[in-house]
Design a protein around this nucleic acid. Structure first.
Length: 307
RNA sequence: GGUGCCAUAGCUCAGUUGGUAGAGCAACGGACUGAAAAUCCGUGUGUCCCUGGUUCGAUUCCAGGUGGCACCA
C-alpha cells in the first residue's frame, strides 16, 4: 500500500471518531487523535469526547493522544507534533495501521505538511535582556525577526512576546534538518455535510450534551480548583458554560451565544480544510449521512486502488 | 369601536429638511508554523408594509388600507 497513514478530518459534529474507529477495526489499526482539546483529562462532554465511539462490535479500538494532560495545562502544536511522531513510530513498528483523526487543522497540517518545529530551550540571557521592555518594544523586536507576522496572540502579553522572540532567534541560529520526521504518505478523508445539515447537527448535539450533564462537568472542573479564567481560555463550551455558571450569562444567552460560536468555529474549520487543499493536500470528501459500512467501504476502496 | 404611536437588512434599530439608505449582531469569504475550540482581516445581502395622490423625482409629504403596540371606551 502506498499510504502509511489514513487521516479522517472534518468540522465538528460530523462523526469523525466513530468512522476512524470503524476503519481502524477493519484495518487492525489504532486511532491517533488530532484534537487540541480532547488531550485534557476530565474535559469530556465539552470536547465532544465519547469513549463509546471507540467500541466497534463490543471491542475497543486503541486510541492515542486523548487524556494525556491535566485540565488547566497548556498543550500546543509543537507538543502535538512530537507526540504524534512518537506514537506513529511506535505503532508502525508493531505493524499496526495508524488512523489520524481530528478537526484541529493546525495540528493536522503540522503532521501532514511536516512543519519544521524544533525544541527551543529557554534562553535565560535573552529573557533577562528583554525583561522590562514594553509590549510595543517587544513587538518591534519580533517584527524585525519575523516580518510576516500574522498572529496577534504572539504579542498579547509580555511573556508570550518574549517566548516568540526566543523561538525566532533560536530558529535563526539553528538551521533545522528535517531528519526527525518520518515520511508520511496519508490518504486524507473529509466528512462532508451541507451547511444546513452541519448546523442542525451542531445544535442538536449541543442540546443533547447539555442534557447529559455538560454543566455538571464544567462545575466539577471549577470545584476541582480551576479558575474561570483557565476554563474560559479553552473556548466554546468551557467558555460559555463557565460564564453562565459564574452568573455572567443567563442560560438562554449562554445557549444561543454558544450555538453561534460553534457554528462559527465549524466554518473556520472548513476554511482551514479548503486552505489545506489549496496548499496541495488532497482531501477525498465523503458524504456524511451515508451508513457507516458504506463510508468505511469507500475508504477501503481508495486504499485498494492505490496499491 | 375611538384615539395615539410604530412598520427600513435574517434580528434590534438609526437615517434620508424629497434625489432609492446605514450601524451593531447574525450571515458569508479569507488568513493562520509553539494558546488554534485561540487570534485576526474583509464583504451589505434591502419591493425602505400595500395602494393611490402631490412632485421632474416619494422610502421620506398627504389620503386610504393592512398588521403590531399602547391608552380610552
Amino acid at each position: 500500500m502506498k499510504y502509511n497513514l489514513v487521516t479522517i478530518l472534518g468540522p465538528t459534529a460530523t462523526g469523525k471518531t466513530g468512522l476512524a474507529a470503524h476503519l481502524a477495526a477493519q484495518l487492525r489499526g489504532e486511532v491517533i487523535s488530532a484534537d487540541s482539546r480532547q488531550v485534557y483529562r476530565g474535559m469530556d462532554l465539552g470536547t465532544g469526547k465519547d469513549y463509546e465511539d471507540y467500541f466497534v462490535d463490543g471491542i475497543e479500538v486503541p486510541s492515542h493522544l486523548v487524556d494525556i494532560e491535566d485540565a488547566g495545562a497548556h498543550y500546543n502544536v509543537y507538543r502535538f507534533q512530537t507526540d504524534f511522531i512518537n506514537v506513529f513510530k511506535e505503532i508502525t513498528a508493531r505493524n499496526v495501521k495508524p488512523v489520524l483523526c481530528g478537526g484541529s487543522g493546525l495540528y493536522l497540517e503540522a503532521v501532514l505538511k511536516n512543519y519544521r518545529l524544533i525544541e527551543v530551550p529557554p534562553n535565560k540571557e535573552l529573557r533577562k535582556e528583554l525583561k522590562g521592555k514594553t509590549l510595543e518594544e517587544l513587538s518591534e523586536i519580533l517584527k524585525g525577526l519575523k516580518p510576516k507576522q500574522h498572529n496577534l496572540t504572539d504579542v498579547e502579553t509580555d511573556r508570550r512576546a518574549i517566548r516568540a522572540i526566543e523561538i525566532e532567534k533560536y530558529y535563526a541560529e539553528h538551521p533545522v534538518e528535517d531528519s526527525e520526521m518520518p515520511q508520511i504518505e496519508s490518504l486524507n478523508i473529509g466528512i462532508d455535510f451541507d451547511r444546513e445539515m452541519r448546523r442542525q447537527r451542531i445544535t442538536s448535539r449541543l442540546k443533547q450534551r447539555l442534557e447529559e450533564g455538560m454543566l455538571d462537568e464544567v462545575q466539577r472542573l471549577l470545584d476541582s480548583g480551576l479558575t474561570p479564567e483557565q476554563l474560559i481560555y479553552y473556548g466554546l463550551e468551557y467558555k460559555f458554560l463557565t460564564l453562565h455558571l459564574i452568573g455572567e450569562l443567563s442560560y438562554d444567552e449562554m445557549f444561543s451565544k454558544l450555538e453561534i460560536a460553534i457554528h462559527q468555529f465549524a466554518k473556520r474549520q472548513m476554511t482551514w480544510f479548503r486552505g489545506m487543499e489549496k496548499r496541495g493536500t488532497k482531501i477525498h470528501w465523503i458524504i456524511g449521512h451515508l451508513p457507516m459500512d458504506k463510508k468505511v467501504g469507500q475508504i477501503l476502496q481508495l486504499l485498494e486502488e492505490s496499491s
